[in-house]
Design a protein around this nucleic acid. Structure first.
Lengths: 158, 158
DNA sequence: AAGGTCAGTTCAGAAAATAAACTTAAGTGA
DNA sequence: TCACTTAAGTTTATTTTCTGAACTGACCTT
């Protein structure tokens, strides 16, 4: 199966991966969320080839995560700005960063401090249940796969 | 820059990507979090080559996201179980799924229902501030990069 | 006019991914 | 006993993608 074929999968995780399922894409988004908008700056921060930066930016523009807007006409220059759906990836990146800080060794030296503007404190993102408002621990979740009844081995047709 | 070199980056997002920065790895984790433990089942669900499944499972075992445990001796058979740090990726996958369901077209038909066991309701994950307990909207976060003072253009030394 | 910046494109070689076949060890059924 | 199936991989040949480095072109600074 090809990367591009993931787009047609019904599972939302697979579809998310078709958009952000690439290390360089995620690092681009990380920098975009920290305010980077220019090609050279993305390239400098990522340290990968210019071709990759160019290709991945185009990919994100195509998927409406970024928009490419001119900021200068002579010579033509553009910057890459997050759309609403792009900004909505902020909590995802935060959660990812938080996981790495908690579970991977060697991240303690580099802690991006996140300030919650409305309360003014440095904070950690906590996953909360939309229904009861309590924090959700990893073991507290049960998945009900909509396709499960079609193929769970436990199921025995009469 | 190579993928393996990301591991030595100080940024937690980059380090997280060195572990889970691959579409197949994330899909493996998705299925592991839904209870899959066997090679053949992972392969069947992912639809990618067996070599990839084999390599990615080994990668996750090496990084202590999964453990490989024998469940049968003749012939030797193993299953792959999530460690604590692996289970801790649940909220990340949930957040990713939720983003796709909200922002990508075509995911509405397939909605994995998540039940919060402690309250019994189907729920959406909401990112909450660890300090004030309020939900964090994408625009509510300010990043303070620990390296920022070394290179922010806005900064003017007296 | 030489050098620098910005935003890319092009290219050849290296690395990785792919599908399909093969392996090993056992169990199933006729 | 022979053929088929399950499980968990490995191997192989081909295709695709990535990489670093050079190149382009329009402008700006000194």
């Amino acid at each position: 199966m090809r990367w591009s074929e993931l787009e047609t999968e019904p599972c939302p995780v697979a579809r998310a991966m078709s958009v952000i399922g690439d290390r360089w894409t995620v690092l681009l988004l990380r920098d975009a969320l920290r305010g980077v908008t220019r090609f050279e700056e993305f390239h400098r921060r990522l340290g990968c080839s210019r071709a990759i930066v160019s290709e991945r930016l185009a990919h994100l523009v195509e998927r409406s995560i970024l928009v490419r807007e001119p900021y200068e006409l002579h010579p033509p220059r553009h910057d890459y700005r997050l759309t609403e759906s792009g900004r909505a990836l902020g909590p995802l990146l935060m959660t990812m960063s938080n996981w790495a800080e908690t579970w991977l060794p060697g991240t303690s030296a580099y802690r991006v401090r996140r300030i919650h503007k409305t309360c003014g404190h440095a904070f950690q993102p906590v996953i909360q249940c939309s229904e009861c408002g309590e924090p959700v621990a990893p073991g507290d979740v049960e998945h009900v796969d909509p396709r499960a009844r079609l193929r769970t081995p436990a199921q025995k047709p009469a």
